[in-house]
Design a protein around this nucleic acid. Structure first.
Lengths: 168, 168
DNA sequence: ATAAACTTTCAAAAGTTATTGAAAGTTCGA
DNA sequence: TCGAACTTTCAATAACTTTTGAAAGTTTAT
C-alpha cells in the first residue's frame, strides 16, 4: 500500500470512530492527519489535504487545542501558525478521558443529586423504583468517576501493569 | 421534588448523556423512562409519556432490544406488547461495553491491520511517522480490547474489587 | 376466513449540526 | 501609521439525522 492511500484510509477510519463517540468527524480527521504527519502543518496544508475550508480548519483546530490534543508552533521567519498533535496514544487517551469526565460526568452528577429525593410514600412502587434506580446509578457513577480520575492521572507504565494484573 | 418532575429531569439528563456518546437522544430517553418504571410499559404509554410518535417508539424500542438493554413481555389477556429495561446499572454498563466493542473496535482493527505496512523507505520521515503512529495505536488498541473483553465478562463484585485494588 | 388489535415500514418533513466563504479583526515589519 | 499576511467570526447554506404518520403487514380470537 502507498503512503497516501494508507493515510487516507486511516483518516477516514479515525473520523468514523470519532463521530460514533460524539466527536465531530472533521475534528477527528484533522487530528488523524496531524497524528501521522512528521512535521507540524499550517492551516493551508490542512485545507489542501482534507479539502475543507479555512473557517472549518480554524474551528476544528481550536477545538482540538481546547481538548489539549493539538498544539501551536511558530517557525522563525514565517508568520503562519503551524500545528502538531500529541502522538503518544496513551496520552491522547488520558486527555480524552479527563476532558469527557469533566464535560459530561459532572452535569449528570448534578442532576442525580437534584433528583435523588422525591416526595411521596416509599411504599408507592413508582417512587420506590425511581429512588432505587437513581441510587444505583449514583453508586455506580461515583465508582466510575474515581476510576476515571485515577486513569487520567496515571503514568502509562503504572496503568498498563495494573491492567495486566486485572487480566490475570 | 415531585416524582413526575424528578422523572422528567432524569429522562432529559440521560438523553443528553446519550447524545454526547453517539446514542440517539430519544433512544436514551426511552431507556431512562423504562429504567425508572416499576412496571413494563406498552408502546402507547411510552408515546404518551415522552410525547413521541408510534413509529419513533417502535424504532427506538427495537434498537434498545437489539442492544440487549430492553426486553419484551406479554401479559395474559392482553394483546399488547409490554417493554421493560434492565435496571442493574452495572449490567447495563457491561452490555454497552460489549456491544460497542463489537460494533466499533472491530472495524478499526481491520483498518489498522490493512494500513500497517506502507511501501517506501523507512528513512523517509513521512513513512516513519505514519508507521510509528499506526503501530502505537495498534498496541494500545490491543490492550484496550483485552481490558474491555475482561470487563464485559466480569461479575460486578469481581470488577469492583479489582477497581478498588487499582485505586489503592 | 374474517376482522380487530396490534406492530412495522418508509418516504416525506422537520430539526439539527457542520461547512463555507467573505468580511472583519489582528499582528507585525518597515 | 500603513499595508500585507495571516487568523477569526458568523450568517447563510448544505448535509445529515431524526421524527412523523399513514399505509402495509402480522397476529390472534372467533
Amino acid at each position: 500500500m502507498k503512503l497516501q492511500e494508507g493515510k487516507e484510509k486511516f483518516i477516514q477510519a479515525w473520523g468514523t470512530l470519532g463521530s460514533n463517540w460524539g466527536i465531530s468527524r472533521t475534528m477527528a480527521q484533522v487530528h488523524a492527519l496531524l497524528m501521522v504527519s512528521p512535521e507540524s502543518l499550517s492551516a493551508d496544508e490542512i485545507m489542501e489535504e482534507l479539502q475543507i475550508s479555512r473557517g472549518n480548519v480554524n474551528l476544528n483546530i481550536r477545538a482540538l487545542i481546547d481538548w489539549g490534543l493539538v498544539f501551536k508552533e511558530h517557525k522563525s521567519g514565517d508568520r503562519k501558525e503551524y500545528f502538531f498533535a500529541e502522538k503518544d496514544v496513551y496520552k491522547v487517551f488520558r486527555q480524552v478521558v479527563k476532558e469527557r469526565r469533566k464535560r459530561e460526568l459532572e452535569p449528570v452528577f448534578k442532576v442525580l443529586e437534584d433528583v435523588k429525593v422525591v416526595e411521596g410514600d416509599q411504599k408507592d412502587p413508582a417512587v420506590k423504583a425511581f429512588t432505587e434506580t437513581i441510587s444505583g446509578i449514583r453508586k455506580f457513577a461515583g465508582k466510575a468517576d474515581k476510576a476515571l480520575d485515577t486513569i487520567s492521572r496515571a503514568e502509562e507504565s503504572w496503568f498498563l501493569s495494573a491492567l495486566l494484573k486485572l487480566m490475570k
